[in-house]
Design a protein around this nucleic acid. Structure first.
Lengths: 392, 392
DNA sequence: CGCTGGCACTCCCAGTCGACGGGTGCCAGG
DNA sequence: CCTGGCACCCGTCGACTGGGAGTGCCAGCG
């Protein structure tokens, strides 16, 4: 599989090509088969990190087979198919008994009596927990990630491209939120007069992020006043944290000569809005189109999810909350608090810069968790690296 | 939102609500067939594309009734209903004859033999052309527009909110593109060192728009060099047009002392990308969710349209091209060159600032053109006014 | 005791049939 | 030129049916 003349181009072509009828995973299945064989013999009891009920090796194998088969085929999978795909040496009837057990444990369910089985949220959860610690992305894709994110003209552009890459690679909705800025140090604080009554306040952080706010100036403000304010600001604010700017300027206003006080107050007002609006504007969403193609979402439902994707503030909260620690997080179906996402899964990871931002993808619960996890990890790593490069 | 007694709002709500059980019809095929038939018989007016054939008053009334009834109800409308809704003093049979005539003229079509009639693209076109010159928005909505757009902290924020307002008011996909900047005058040109190897170039236009580009500095650049470059830039570039910046800085680089030349070249490089990326980043899209609710778009199709909405560059081109003159533009179905928009209509209008930007909405051909046109106009007007205020 | 093949059963799905009804086109008469 | 009447067309809906996939259970086997 790995001897191409032009690896990057080939991967790109493949990624582009198989979109039509979604054969998601090439990674997971063969790996599963191999691991299944081993565990069937060994049956080493797992360390049981959280409160998972013990599942014997064969049950685990069967569950794994059902999940990956259902993910790739999209149809309920029956006992016969399980035998084939998991290469089990037992009969379908035996598997049926096991499946019946798995069902009463809540890992799988049948859409209708006498249809095949489908993983439940709990089943997916178990599947994900049982995944090998860190699934790696295959070389070609990793190269593609590097190619897509290696260069960047500025942070914002980079994040936008990250989002685009993520959605292209996974064919899911991608979410990227910019690192919070309140801990970043200010490199520049500038006030630009646009017209007699108004000015623009510019704040540039050492991460390269630029915030701007228009300021309504008192009517009697002179050019000269403005110059003085500019100097004061530039001197006093530089080097401070963005989160402290409002307090700093407010204090300046109190101590300032009366003719400058009003102007400084206006500037302080402008910075008050800063932190509230802040993250909101910096959520990047890509690949909504993929949702429409997915049968998991009915019209009505689809519409609500798309609406959710437009509420940047909610999204930011959602993602931030899901990436509380450093490890990749998977929220499956009902595990999502948000009502509209009960049929969806979120795979997210944090990335570090000065402060952490996060990124992830959102898609139907029926997704190829192994590959998606690997991709999210790889993209997060690459993003972090490029960001580091950028502020090197 | 608007009060429920407000007729326009009621219409909008109804249109939005009954999407669920609307019939999907292929307008194109029967229309083509009909037109072919006509041309075979009549073969008189082949060469006249944009000229409207005369239509007697009753036919116009009937067409109008069919369009508005179909838009609000979503079902093919029969002769009997036309009589009711248009309050005609003739019998259904008579109307049937007229409808038959309208059909062979290509204004309406039947989805299947012996179903009611549905407007063709040509029918909508005629309907729109026959609309009273400028449909006004009712008071309540106009107030709402003002409320939504009256205040703004900066241009970008304003445009984002315009987009949101537009999609909420029309329940369609909204598109807003920022005014092109190359004619705007620069108020500030600043170079901020972020780390030894890199800096950030800031350009602020008198419209309040901020452009930023990161610049890779030559390794040997000193703090002092940077200060000198900063002064040169600040002096030489201020007041110029954004479109001329690249040329100006390139010239500066040639004339500069050798130790500054490389730095200025790097800055010039950064501004080269300016105009290309420019408009791309400043397209605001809102209300995608409304597409999902609409039966006019099949899954596959929906997905392609959503994808189109993510290609900002294409969108910008599309919209700019549609708003060549000052008047509101309506592109109905097949009138759109873009393949994926054959089932959609675009209603757009330009707004003026220093240079023109444009905004509009995109939705199924089956939309309430009168209300939508009025809304687009009102929003464009209000936006323009607020922008003017902002740079007063 | 666990595994197996066999078997009856359940239920979805796709296709067929027929009644129904809305809407049309045409025609003969005012 | 308009009208009521009438035959006809066709899509929709419900009922019915056969096929098929998958299950649960059971009796028998190693």
């Amino acid at each position: 599989m790995a001897s191409p003349s032009d690896p990057a181009a080939r991967t790109a072509a493949r990624v582009a090509a198989d979109g039509a009828d979604a054969v998601h995973l090439e990674v997971a299945v063969p790996a599963d088969a191999a691991r299944a064989a081993v565990e069937a013999v060994a049956e080493a009891d797992d360390g049981a990190p959280s409160e998972e009920e013990p599942l014997d090796a064969r049950k685990r194998t069967i569950l794994r087979a059902i999940v990956s088969e259902y993910v790739s085929r999209g149809e309920p999978v029956g006992s016969k198919r399980v035998v084939e795909v998991a290469r089990l040496e037992v009969s379908a009837a035996t598997v049926r008994n096991e499946m019946s057990a798995l069902e009463s444990l809540g890992y799988i369910a049948q859409p209708h009596t006498s249809a095949g089985r489908v993983p439940t949220d709990k089943g997916y959860r178990r599947f994900v927990d049982d995944l090998s610690a860190d699934p790696a992305l295959d070389g070609a894709r990793r190269e593609l990630v590097q190619e897509l994110l290696g260069t960047a003209s500025d942070v914002e552009d980079l994040l936008a491209r990250t989002s685009s890459a993520l959605s292209q690679l996974t064919r899911l909705v991608s979410l990227v939120i910019a690192p919070a800025v309140d801990a970043a140090r200010l490199k520049l604080c500038e006030l630009v007069g646009l017209s007699p009554g108004s000015a623009l306040l510019l704040l540039v952080a050492d991460t390269g992020r630029v915030e701007k706010r228009s300021v309504e100036l008192p009517a009697e403000t002179t050019e000269h006043d403005l110059d003085r304010v500019r100097i004061v600001l530039s001197e006093q604010v530089r080097g401070r944290r963005l989160g402290d700017v409002h307090a700093t300027i407010s204090r300046l206003a109190e101590d300032a000569p009366s003719e400058l006080r009003e102007v400084l107050r206006a500037v302080a007002d402008a910075t008050a809005r800063e932190l509230a609006d802040d993250t909101v504007h910096h959520v990047f969403v890509g690949g909504q189109a993929s949702l429409a193609g997915d049968e998991a979402f009915e019209r009505e439902h689809l519409s609500r999810v798309l609406q959710l994707l437009e509420e940047r503030a909610t999204l930011a909260r959602l993602l931030a909350e899901a990436t509380a620690d450093d490890r990749p997080t998977v929220r499956i179906g009902e595990e999502n608090e948000v009502e509209d996402l009960r049929a969806a899964s979120l795979v997210a990871q944090r990335y570090q810069l000065v402060t952490a931002g996060s990124l992830g993808v959102l898609g139907p619960t029926r997704m190829d968790y192994a590959t998606v996890l690997a991709t999210v990890r790889a993209v997060a790593d690459q993003l972090q690296e490029t960001l580091l490069d950028l502020s090197r």
